[in-house]
């Protein structure tokens, strides 16, 4: 009788263990899944993972870190909290970033994709390297409010992470350097290049645009394309697009201390723009319509206003409809539904 109850106990234990393992199973990622691919009309990437050799294990570790609130001081906020895959890793419907203890940040969470082609990060370019970028939100008191030392200590005390770091980097010692490199192995893999626009560029005969999309593309090139330059749809520059007469947020000036940078912010990519609302560095515009109205008649004249915008951009409402039709072709659902990146 006693024997039976022991067996039962063991069986129950096994089941519990099995359940626990089951619930932790990651979607299967193969070596081929971490190979990076992009179209030949993309420029050469700025970040080549030099000194950060990609592997399946590094990718999975980075993914776990990206979605784990362990990076925040009270273990409530992860990278994924403000960067959601279904909206191209922007923060759906949130003007400003949300941090620990319901604190509000001062800027809109940018969408994350094609980061290999970015030289600088944040709206003001305050981060000069993709591997250093995560330090910003981790330390920001209004975001994750942690210290690097604190994160490394927590990870080092966690058996699961010790195993994952061992698998990824063959080391028993968890360092901030390896943590950052792992996060980049994951987040640096976000390539958005499978939109309808891309399919049109690659084979227009098989993937034609509608008349209105075609007109929209031509209008876009004429009226928007000098800053939002294809194929990345940004020129990675900093510009004052006439949002304010008085700068509550000094933007790029905060980084450079150069007066001519006052009120300038990074030109964001317009890939996936239909998904990444609200818009601007402070999320002030809810809709693309509001954005067009701003460029049409809302430009504020200041000393650092971009010369291209000094007279605003004249767009008729018919043209606006066509440009929006074109912008919708930049939505990349293969990227937003890519199972490799799914939480």
């Amino acid at each position: 009788m006693q024997k039976i109850s022991i067996y039962l106990f063991l069986a129950a234990l096994l089941q519990i263990c099995a359940c626990k393992v089951d619930s932790k199973i990651e979607p299967i990622v193969t070596e081929d899944d971490v190979v990076l691919r992009w179209p030949d009309y993309f420029p050469a990437p700025i970040y080549n993972f030099e000194g950060n050799k990609r592997s399946k294990e590094g990718f999975l570790l980075g993914k776990k870190l990206f979605y784990d609130p362990i990076l925040s001081s009270d273990n409530t906020i992860s990278c994924g909290s403000c960067h959601q895959q279904f909206v191209a890793f922007a923060h759906a419907d949130h003007k400003l970033s949300h941090g620990v203890e319901n604190k509000l940040g001062v800027r809109n969470s940018p969408a994350l994709f094609n980061l290999m082609w970015q030289k600088e990060f944040f709206w003001d370019g305050g981060s000069k390297h993709i591997e250093l970028q995560p330090i910003g939100p981790i330390l920001n008191p209004l975001e994750m409010n942690e210290t690097i030392e604190g994160v490394v200590n927590k990870l080092s005390q966690n058996a699961a992470y010790r195993t994952l770091f061992k698998a990824a980097f063959n080391t028993d010692s968890i360092t901030s350097q390896l943590m950052l490199k792992a996060i980049v192995q994951f987040m640096g893999s976000f390539i958005s290049a499978n939109s309808r626009y891309d399919k049109f560029v690659q084979d227009p005969a098989r993937n034609p645009f509608t008349e209105s999309e075609k007109n929209g593309l031509a209008l876009f090139e004429q009226k928007c394309g000098s800053c939002h330059v294809p194929p990345l749809f940004t020129d990675n520059s900093y510009r004052n697009n006439g949002l304010d007469e008085v700068f509550i947020d000094s933007g790029r000036y905060r980084i450079t201390n150069i007066n001519s940078d006052m009120g300038k912010f990074k030109v964001p990519s317009l890939r996936n723009v239909a998904l990444t609302y609200p818009y601007m560095h402070d999320g002030r515009f809810e809709t693309l319509d509001q954005v067009f109205n701003h460029y049409g008649s809302g430009i504020k004249q200041t000393g650092t206003l971009d010369p291209l915008l000094s007279n605003g951009i004249s767009i008729t409402s018919a043209e606006k409809g066509q440009i929006i039709a074109f912008l919708n072709t930049l939505t990349d659902l293969e990227f937003t539904k890519d199972l490799r990146f799914k939480e």
Binding site: G51, N52, H129, I130, E131, L132, I135, T147, I148, E149, V152, T175, S176, Q177, L180, K181
Partner: peptide, 10 residues
């Protein structure tokens, strides 16, 4: 990029 040793950001 991410450094280690004396340059560890921690």
């Amino acid at each position: 990029g991410a450094q280690t040793g004396a340059l560890d950001p921690s």
